[in-house]
Deep mutational scan, measured.
Amino acid sequence: RQGFVPAAYVKKLDSGTGKELVLALYDYQEKSPREVTMKKGDILTLLNSTNKDWWKVEVN
């Protein structure tokens, strides 16, 4: 499932696989259909980080 999360809630990881991955630093509950819920410690695939406030991710 793809959607947006606050950029301040995730940290980029060095995956070494060519995929950009991020680590969820905090729990986040989606507040609109365009967002996704994540739990602290989740590893997500980063799809787009051009917006400084909201990053598009895919929940694996």
Rank of each mutant, 00 (worst) to 15 (best):
P33E: 12
Y26C: 13
I43M: 07
K31R: 15
R34N: 14
S32D: 10
E30I: 07
T50E: 14
E58C: 08
A7N: 02
V5K: 01
Q29C: 11
Y26G: 05
V57W: 00
K31A: 10
L25D: 01
D53R: 15
T45A: 10
D14Q: 11
L21M: 14
T50S: 15
A8K: 15
A7S: 13
V57T: 01
E35A: 06
D27F: 04
L25H: 02
S32Y: 06
K12Y: 08
K56Q: 12
K56H: 11
K40C: 06
K11A: 11
E35H: 07
E30M: 12
G41S: 03
S49L: 04
D27H: 05
E30R: 13
V57M: 01
Y26M: 13
N51L: 09
E35P: 04
M38S: 00
P6L: 04
K11I: 15
Q2P: 05
S15E: 09
R34I: 12
E20K: 13
K19Q: 12
D14P: 15
E35L: 05
K19A: 11
L13V: 11
G41Y: 05
K31L: 09
T37H: 05
K12V: 09
V5Y: 00
L21I: 09
A24P: 00
Y26R: 15
W55D: 00
Y28F: 07
D53T: 14
A24K: 00
N51S: 09
E20G: 11
T17R: 07
I43V: 12
E58F: 05
T37K: 05
L46D: 00
A7M: 04
L46K: 01
L44Y: 11
R1D: 05
E30K: 13
P6F: 04
D42G: 03
E58D: 04
V59L: 12
E35C: 07
G41N: 06
T50A: 12
D53S: 11
I43P: 01
K19N: 11
L13D: 03
G16L: 14
Y28V: 01
L25F: 03
V36D: 00
D27W: 03
A24L: 02
N60Y: 14
G18A: 11
N60C: 11
A7T: 06
S49E: 14
E35G: 11
T37P: 08
K12G: 04
V10P: 00
A24R: 00
D14A: 12
P33Q: 08
G16V: 13
D53F: 15
S32K: 07
G41T: 02
K52F: 10
K56Y: 15
S32R: 10
R34D: 12
L13R: 03
T45N: 09
K12D: 04
L23H: 05
D27I: 02
T45R: 13
L25Q: 05
K39A: 08
L25S: 02
T37I: 03
D42A: 07
V10D: 01
S49F: 07
T17S: 13
V10K: 01
G16N: 15
D42I: 04
R1P: 06
E30Q: 13
F4K: 03
I43N: 03
L13E: 04
T17N: 15
K31H: 09
T50G: 09
E30F: 06
L47S: 02
L13I: 15
P33W: 10
S15V: 14
P33R: 06
G41K: 02
T17V: 14
S32T: 10
L46N: 00
K31S: 09
R34C: 14
M38P: 00
E35R: 04
L25T: 05
V22W: 08
V57Q: 00
A7E: 03
T45D: 05
Q29F: 13
W55I: 05
G41V: 02
S49I: 07
L23S: 05
D42S: 06
D27P: 06
A7K: 06
V36N: 02
F4M: 08
S32I: 04
K52M: 11
P6Q: 02
Q29V: 15
Q29G: 07
R1Q: 09
D42M: 11
K12N: 05
G16E: 12
G18C: 13
V5T: 01
T45I: 15
K19G: 09
Y9V: 06
Q29P: 06
L44R: 00
T17P: 14
I43Q: 04
V36F: 13
T17C: 13
T45C: 09
I43H: 04
W55R: 00
I43L: 08
L25C: 07
W54V: 02
K11M: 15
L44T: 01
K31E: 07
L46P: 00
A8F: 09
V22I: 07
R34E: 12
L44G: 05
V22L: 08
K56N: 06
R34V: 12
G3D: 01
N51F: 08
N60H: 13
R1V: 08
K12R: 14
P33M: 08
A8R: 15
W54R: 03
T50Q: 11
T17I: 14
N48L: 08
G41C: 07
V5C: 04
K39D: 04
K12M: 10
Y26N: 09
W55K: 01
E35N: 05
G41L: 03
F4Q: 03
E35M: 05
L23P: 00
L44V: 05
S49Y: 08
N60R: 13
N60F: 13
E58S: 08
R1E: 05
R1F: 07
R1A: 08
F4C: 11
A7L: 02
L21K: 09
K40V: 07
K56F: 15
T37Y: 04
D53K: 14
S32A: 08
S15P: 09
V22Q: 01
I43T: 06
E30T: 09
Y26F: 15
W54C: 06
D42N: 06
K40Y: 04
D53I: 15
T45K: 12
Q29K: 12
N51T: 06
A24E: 00
K12S: 05
A8W: 09
K52H: 11
T17E: 14
P33I: 10
S32L: 06
Q2H: 09
P33H: 11
R1Y: 07
L25K: 06
T45W: 13
L23V: 15
A8P: 07
I43D: 00
K31F: 05
E58R: 09
G18T: 11
W55G: 00
T50R: 10
L47N: 02
T50P: 03
K19L: 12
K39C: 10
A7V: 06
D42K: 02
A8M: 12
L21T: 09
N51V: 05
D14F: 12
G18I: 10
Q2M: 08
R34F: 13
V22P: 00
S32Q: 08
L44C: 08
Y26V: 12
E58W: 06
E30W: 06
P33Y: 09
V22R: 01
V57I: 07
M38F: 09
E20W: 12
K19H: 12
Y26W: 10
K11H: 10
L21N: 05
N51K: 06
W55M: 04
K52N: 11
G16Y: 12
K40L: 05
V57G: 00
V10I: 06
A8E: 10
V5A: 03
W54I: 03
S32W: 06
S32G: 12
L46A: 02
E20A: 15
N48H: 07
G18E: 13
T50N: 12
V36E: 01
D53Y: 15
E30H: 10
A24V: 08
N60D: 12
S15W: 15
G41W: 05
L13Q: 05
S49C: 11
E30L: 07
Q2S: 11
Q29S: 11
W54E: 04
S15H: 12
N48R: 06
Y26L: 12
G3N: 01
Q29Y: 15
K39W: 09
V59Q: 14
L23K: 09
K39G: 05
V59R: 11
Y9W: 07
W55N: 01
R1I: 09
M38R: 00
A8D: 09
L23F: 08
S15Y: 14
S15G: 12
E20P: 14
Y28Q: 00
K56E: 14
G41H: 04
Y9R: 05
G3Y: 04
K19D: 09
G3H: 02
V36P: 02
F4S: 03
L47Q: 03
L21P: 02
Y9G: 06
K12T: 07
R34S: 14
Y28W: 10
E58M: 10
I43W: 04
G16Q: 13
L21W: 10
L25P: 00
K11C: 13
R34T: 13
L44S: 02
D42Q: 14
E20I: 15
M38D: 00
